[in-house]
């Protein structure tokens, strides 16, 4: 018996709603495209691109303190631009900045730059003592995303969700 689950981006969008995560800031990524499209199309969300990921960390921090929950969508290389602002804003001030990272640089990456920067992601998250989980299976997607967001909110701590190519299919290059 196999239960038919909706695609990952539909699950994620519904979990955002269930947790009242309304403000979506992003620096785009190909893998995130269907999610970003669906978020733009849904009037529940305020959804826009920022020029840089750091900026979005600032916007989400201000919004959360003033009563509006949000999340930052980006790819691996974008996350690598963030350690200074994560350490000195959400970590220092105990603000639950939530992040969703589409994982590039592994499982068939064609760009050596992405492969190199990918190796820095989890060590950075670990050294900042930030909660992070990797979503690799569709049947685990709802629980991991939902529980991670809930814990971030309840403990006032930033958190990161990494979307593995095992879940999303990743970005592949033609043979």
């Amino acid at each position: 018996m196999t239960e038919t689950l909706p695609p990952w981006h539909e699950i994620v969008l519904n979990v955002f709603k269930a947790n009242e995560v309304k403000l979506i800031t992003y620096v785009p990524d190909n893998v995130l495209k269907p999610l970003i499209q669906a978020l733009h199309a849904d009037p529940y969300f305020t959804c826009f691109a920022t020029a840089r990921e750091e900026e979005a960390v600032g916007i989400l921090s201000g919004a959360w303190m003033a009563g509006l929950r949000g999340i930052l969508l980006m790819q691996t290389s974008g996350f690598a631009t963030l350690p200074n602002v994560l350490a000195s804003l959400p970590c220092a001030f105990q603000i639950p900045v939530m992040m969703m990272i589409s994982e590039r640089g592994t499982l068939g990456e064609f760009n050596v730059g992405q492969a190199a920067v990918c190796r820095t992601m989890r060590p950075i998250l670990d050294s900042l003592a930030m909660e992070h989980h990797t979503v690799s299976r569709l049947d685990e997607c709802e629980m991991i995303v939902d529980r991670t967001l809930r814990q971030a909110i309840m403990t006032q701590a930033p958190a990161a969700l990494i979307l593995s190519p095992l879940l999303t299919g990743g970005k592949v290059v033609a043979r």
Partner: peptide, 17 residues
């Protein structure tokens, strides 16, 4: 206390909320 450059983004987040 850090995050140099983020005063405007933080204020924008407050303004949106």
């Amino acid at each position: 206390l850090g995050s140099m450059g983020l005063a405007i983004p933080i204020a924008m987040g407050v303004a949106l909320a």
